[in-house]
Amino acid sequence: MENLYLITRSTFERTAWKLAARLAKSGDTLCFIQDAVLAVKGPVELAGKLSELESAGVTVRFLKEDLAARGLSAPADKVINYDGLTELIENAKRIIS
């Protein structure tokens, strides 16, 4: 993996995810943690952008512990736990938050 974009803040309240979405390219990963797991609920603009990015070869992940803490869920194949996040970090050339 080239770049791991780590997004931590609510995707409704904050726009930090937009920079990641515009810069991410094939081989990169977008990982939503902390309040950013709200990304599973939108906003609509983000949902559209994520499917576009996935078609372009970008991987999208959500942190299991942060989803569970907030009573949220995501498709199983997109959920990673802390051990999985540790591996993403090991395998990324650089991490961008």
Partner: peptide, 9 residues
């Protein structure tokens, strides 16, 4: 010295 660097703000 770090191979990976994470920032939390």
């Amino acid at each position: 010295e770090c191979d990976r660097f994470l920032s939390f703000g």
